[in-house]
C-alpha cells in the first residue's frame, strides 16, 4: 500500500514534468508568463491538455480490451473502431460534409467507431448470449478489413488533393481549436477512467477466464457489456478528438504491466498516467523537431514506442 502511493507520486511527478516540457517548447518561443495568456499560450495549453486526455484514454482502453479479450495484442482499435472511424471521417472530409460545423468530423468519427464495435459485438454474439473471444477477434478483423477496403475505395475515387487530408487524419492529429471538443473528450475519458478504476477488480477476475470469473462471483455477461461500452466510448472520444494514434494503447499497458504486475487496480491508473506522459513527450517531439512544420504523431509513437517496448521485453521475460 505504502509503495503504491510512492509509485503514483512518481508517475504524477513524471506527468507534470512532461507537461512542463510540452508547455515550454513549441514552434513559437513563449516566456512562462505568456503561458496562460490568451493567444499562443492558451492554444498550447489546450493542446497539452488534449494530449494528456488522449494518451490516458488510449492506454486505459488498451488495458480494458487486453483484459476482456485475454489477448496481449489487443489494443483500442482491435474491434474495428479505427476503420469505422476512419471510414466515417474520410466520408466527411471527402464529401465536404464538414460544412455543417466543426463538430461534424469528430462526431462522425465517434459514431463510426461506436457503430463498428457494436456491429462486431452483434456478429460475434452466439445464440444464448455466449460470446466466444475468438469469434469476437475474428469478427473484429473481418469487419475491420471490409471497412478498410471501403475506405480505400472512397479514397480511390476522391480528388487527389483531398486524399492527402484523409491520410493525415489517419495518422493522428492533436491540433485542437475548440474548447468544447476538448471538454467533451475529457468528460468521456475521465468518466471512463474513473469507472474503470472503481471496477478494476472485475477486470482482474476477467483475466482468469469467464468461467472462473463467474465462479468468483462476477456477473460476467453484465461486466463484459459494461466494459465493452466503456472501452468503446473512450476509444470513440479519443478517435474523434485526435484521429488514429497507434501503438500507445498497445505498448503502454504492456510496459506498465511488466513494471508493476497485472493487478488492474494499479494497472489502470498507472497506465493512464504513463500513457499521458508518453504522448505529451511524443507530441512535444513531433511539434518541435521540424518546427514550424509538424510531423505525424502516429509516426513518432511507433518509432519511439516500438524500440522501447522491445527493450523492456528483452530485459524481463514474462508478459
Amino acid at each position: 500500500m505504502k509503495r503504491g502511493w510512492r509509485l503514483y507520486l512518481l508517475l504524477i511527478a513524471a506527468l507534470l514534468v512532461s507537461c512542463a516540457i510540452g508547455l515550454g517548447i513549441g514552434a513559437v518561443h513563449l516566456s512562462p508568463g505568456d503561458l496562460f495568456a490568451p493567444g499562443v499560450g492558451q492554444l498550447r495549453l489546450a493542446r497539452v491538455l488534449l494530449t494528456v486526455v488522449v494518451g490516458a484514454g488510449l492506454s486505459v482502453a488498451g488495458v480494458i480490451f487486453q483484459a476482456l479479450l485475454r489477448n496481449p495484442l489487443a489494443e483500442p482499435y482491435v474491434l474495428g473502431a479505427s476503420s469505422g472511424a476512419g471510414l466515417a471521417a474520410a466520408m466527411v472530409i471527402l464529401m465536404g460534409w464538414s460544412v455543417a460545423g466543426a463538430w461534424v468530423l469528430p462526431g462522425g468519427a465517434f459514431v463510426g467507431s461506436i457503430l463498428t464495435v457494436a456491429l462486431v459485438y452483434a456478429l460475434a454474439r452466439g445464440s444464448g448470449g455466449a460470446l466466444p473471444i475468438h469469434s469476437l477477434l475474428l469478427a473484429g478483423v473481418v469487419v475491420g478489413a471490409v471497412l478498410s477496403s471501403l475506405l480505400m475505395f472512397v479514397v480511390s475515387i476522391a480528388p487527389p488533393e483531398r486524399v492527402h487530408n484523409v491520410m493525415w487524419w489517419l495518422l493522428g492529429n492533436l491540433q485542437i481549436f475548440d474548447w468544447g471538443l476538448l471538454r467533451a473528450a475529457t468528460v468521456l475519458v475521465v468518466c471512463g477512467l474513473g469507472i474503470t478504476i472503481l471496477l478494476a477488480r472485475d477486470l482482474n477476475l476477467m483475466t482468469l477466464g469467464e468461467e472462473s470469473a463467474a465462479h468468483l462471483g462476477l456477473n460476467v455477461n453484465q461486466s463484459r457489456v459494461l466494459f465493452f461500452i466503456l472501452a468503446s466510448l473512450i476509444t470513440g472520444a479519443v478517435v474523434a478528438a485526435a484521429g488514429l494514434i497507434g501503438f500507445v494503447g498497445l505498448i503502454v499497458p504492456h510496459s506498465v504491466r511488466l513494471a508493476i504486475g497485472p493487478d488492474h487496480r494499479r494497472l489502470a491508473p498507472a497506465s493512464a498516467l504513463v500513457g499521458a506522459t508518453f504522448l505529451v513527450l511524443a507530441d512535444a517531439f513531433a511539434r518541435t523537431i521540424m518546427a514550424p512544420t509538424e510531423i505525424p504523431i502516429g509516426v513518432v509513437t511507433a518509432c519511439l514506442g516500438g524500440p522501447f517496448f522491445l527493450f523492456l521485453l528483452k530485459r524481463k521475460r514474462p508478459v
Binding site: T207, L208, E211, S212, A214, H215, G217, R257, G261, P262
Partner: peptide
C-alpha cells in the same frame, strides 16, 4: 446472485490461469 453463490461454493478447473502473471 453470483456473489452469494461464490460465497457458498468454489470451483477448481483444469489448466487454470496459464496466461496470467499474478503471483
Amino acid at each position: 446472485t453470483r456473489r452469494t453463490w461464490a460465497q457458498t461454493a468454489a470451483c477448481l478447473m483444469q489448466d487454470m490461469g496459464m496466461d496470467t502473471t499474478f503471483t
